[in-house]
């Protein structure tokens, strides 16, 4: 009983955190605020799914939460690569030896 109360309290806390992160996403002055907001919103989704699965009594769905964490990570990397190189194509093809160099300076 105490465990389920703790789970419900944590679900409510995650909802509050989601709301705060969404506010940062909407008003966030810089673009990096928004990227960070999306990333931490993805983390909140992972946590929410995990907590909901434990509340529902089926912790085997924890695997899905783990997969969401992976997708979230890859998505954030893609967005940051967009910032760094302004192009996904160069970001992929510049693997050979010159990964640290921004494309703009090449010309």
């Amino acid at each position: 009983m105490a465990l389920s109360v703790a789970l419900i309290v944590s679900a409510v806390a995650i909802f509050v955190a989601m709301l705060i992160v969404m506010l940062r996403l909407f008003i966030g002055p810089s673009l990096y605020d928004r990227v960070l907001a999306v990333n931490s919103f993805g983390t909140k989704t992972v946590l929410l799914i995990a907590v909901l699965n434990f509340i529902g009594g089926r912790p085997e769905f924890l695997d899905i939460a783990l997969l969401y964490a992976l997708i979230n990570f890859v998505g954030t990397i893609a967005i940051l690569k967009f910032f760094r190189y302004r192009s996904f194509q160069m970001a992929m093809s510049s693997v050979r030896g010159r990964a640290g160099m921004p494309v703009d300076k090449e010309e």
Binding site: L25, F26, R34, A37
Partner: peptide, 13 residues
């Protein structure tokens, strides 16, 4: 850009 970010959050939700 912000619209794209909010779209990602919409999908997660």
């Amino acid at each position: 850009f912000s619209v794209v970010m909010v779209g990602g959050v919409y999908s997660l939700l």
